[in-house]
Design a protein around this nucleic acid. Sequence first.
DNA 1: ATCTTTCATGACCACTTGGTCATAACACAA
DNA 2: TTGTGTTATGACCAAGTGGTCATGAAAGAT
Lengths: 216, 216
Amino acid sequence: MKDAAALSTFRHLPPDKQERVLTAALEEFADKGYHQASLNKVVAQAGIAKGSIYQYFPNKEGLFSFLFQQALGAVRRTLTAVKEETLEQDLFSRLEKSLRAGVRFLREHPRIYNFYLKIQYDKNVPFREEFLAVIRRHAAEYFGSLVRRAKARGELRPGVPEDAVLFLLDAVFDRFLQATALSALDVTLGLHQAPPEIVDKRIREIIGLLREGLAA
Amino acid sequence: MKDAAALSTFRHLPPDKQERVLTAALEEFADKGYHQASLNKVVAQAGIAKGSIYQYFPNKEGLFSFLFQQALGAVRRTLTAVKEETLEQDLFSRLEKSLRAGVRFLREHPRIYNFYLKIQYDKNVPFREEFLAVIRRHAAEYFGSLVRRAKARGELRPGVPEDAVLFLLDAVFDRFLQATALSALDVTLGLHQAPPEIVDKRIREIIGLLREGLAA
DNA sequence: ATCTTTCATGACCACTTGGTCATAACACAA
DNA sequence: TTGTGTTATGACCAAGTGGTCATGAAAGAT
């Protein structure tokens, strides 16, 4: 994570200008992914000259890296907040609340979420392995701690394979969030622009299925 | 789906040359996605001149469209085969077998699967909405028919919301296949290059969890 | 052998990209 | 006013893109 620092010129800029640049860049990367994103578009949107962006960041990769760092910070803050808030509750309430928090985050920071999706699904993004490993670590820590705590409390059916449980949670959470963010994946549940009550209802349904199973 | 036809010149080509071109193109698109894919690379790999590709297909979009059509055909054939083979079995056996068939397909046609993933996760692919709608229809038909049949046979817990069940199946299947195809998403299960026994074991675990639930 | 139709070719075009750099504008000090 | 260090600028570059087209090679038919 070397190139993550902005150049000193950028750090001395008035905050509103910094924000204009970062917002424009995040938007472009979130929309197009790394390679397809155009710095020409970014500078135009931010209202600065082409040369200026290279006074702020060493190059395209540096800018990209910096944005990732920022985004990661935002995610980590909400993750740890939810984790602590729900510490004493049972697994399935915690899962419900986590998913709700996920949806809230995604609606407050849609660009960050799309940015993350591009990293996950575009093989040719610089630092991809590095970045995904970091995200992976956080997710594993989060779900892992929930599940282990639940197991210790006897909330899980005895003998369930922990790996498979983690996979299941990861899969369902990820896809649920993808469905609320990308209309193309929102086939069955109608989450894309749904009001909170609907989303909550869906969350309860899904967690209920995970909890009790499908079989008669 | 207008542009899906190859130009007549292509159709009159010797089959091995056709295949060289299609393989090279599919590989490039599967690897880079639509925009990042380079026709220059395709023609180089196929061993033909730049101009020739425009004698075979009207343009980049036309080539892309044609490949989609081909890929869809391959998917449909295996889908209907599995559906019919398992018609008389109970839901959870059918799900296991479907997932196994999915893994098999993906290993036999890795490029087709990556091609599909690019379409799903790149907002800026031409005809994307059209293509995804088609895929969606097939998946909904497939899972829908399995689930309705199971419900009619009383294999499902009474009162489970059908939408949510479909979502869950879609999410888990999709992610399972993604994990076996993309090492980056294969965090917990170790599927990426696993031998069939391991994969089968994982499949049974996952379907078991879906069937019986997580709760004690 | 000549004509015609089909296929192959690669130089070429306009355009976009990430990145550079000489120059100009600015701000603050002496 | 003169000097000094920092920031802003956009013309410019090499490289790569999708796409075109005049030319030439094959192949078959007469």
